[in-house]
Amino acid sequence: MPRLRIHGNDVHYLEYGDPGSPPLVVVHGLYGEASTMAPLAEQFGDKFRVIVPDALGHGLSAHPPAFGLEDQGRMLTGLIAALGYDAASLLGVSMGSYLSAQAAAQEPARISGLVLVVSKAHGRSSSMAAYAAREGFDLAAATPEETVGFMAGALWSPHTPQPEREEFLAAQLRLQQVVLTPQDRAAIDQSLRDFDLRPLLPAITAPTLVVSGRADGLNPPEAGEEVARGIPGARFEVYERSGHMLPVEEMDRLVTEVEGFLLS
């Protein structure tokens, strides 16, 4: 399992595709890890060298007691540099989109293309934490199975049948390598408290695609559209048959459109 030391933190990552292909860094969402992004990352392996890191505080990367979006952004651009690239494309999903936007604003020259999936520009907390607080659900005490079950109503489109949802959950549990502790989750939640990317978005120079799911109960299309409005020249798309789980619900469409966008 490859690992690099980036700005004082060990960063674990997975790789797919031909090393000679254009680089694409794929960034997972809240409480996720590189391994759980394998189904999506593998789809890009025919046309990209895909690098999927564990974000700080997640998976097999370092779990510092305190970190923020700025640290995550520096990790991503530092990883691109450490792998020998002048620049790479970034694709971030949910929380991964916040990290990717942060990186693209901090070091615009390092990012050649940017795709932000089910994103938002600001929040008092993570979208999951905000939803759980509204519903009185204790995320810190919940198992991964309990969390996914509770979040189902906010995550999925009504177009996605229950057997497909259960199949995805079972696959994710098989792929997961690290179970986060309550302390890990608390540090991650703190890193997203009162974040606001809006002042940074105009600094992004990479061609940018922002994609939202019509039925997303966490980051609705209005949130994605706000992100796109803040980035010069960004393109915005809504997937009508998706919720927050857009990369699963309409994976084929997403892969086709991302490849066309980044390779055009």
Results as ranks from 00 to 15, higher is better:
P2E: 03
L4S: 06
D10N: 11
H12N: 06
P19S: 15
P23K: 04
L24R: 02
H28P: 00
Y31R: 07
L40F: 05
A41H: 08
D46C: 02
V50Q: 01
D54H: 08
D54R: 07
L56N: 04
S61M: 09
P64D: 15
A66Y: 12
L69I: 08
M75G: 01
G78D: 12
G84E: 06
D86Y: 04
L90G: 00
S94D: 11
M95S: 15
A101C: 10
A103Y: 11
A103I: 12
A104D: 11
Q106I: 12
P108L: 14
R110H: 09
R110N: 05
S112W: 10
L114W: 06
V117S: 14
A121H: 02
G123F: 06
S125A: 15
S126W: 01
Y131F: 14
A132D: 05
G136Q: 09
A140N: 13
A140C: 10
M151V: 09
S157K: 03
H159S: 12
T160K: 06
T160V: 12
P161H: 07
F168H: 14
L169M: 09
L169G: 06
L169E: 11
R174Q: 11
V178A: 06
L180D: 02
P182R: 10
P182Q: 09
Q183Y: 05
R185L: 09
A187Q: 04
I188P: 01
I188G: 03
D189I: 07
Q190I: 05
R193N: 01
R193W: 05
L197G: 06
P199F: 13
L201G: 15
L201Y: 15
I204C: 00
A206W: 05
R214A: 14
R214N: 10
G217F: 08
P220R: 07
P221Q: 09
A228P: 02
A228T: 06
R229G: 09
P232Y: 05
G233I: 11
Y239I: 12
S242Q: 00
L246F: 01
P247T: 07
E249K: 02
E257F: 07
L263R: 14
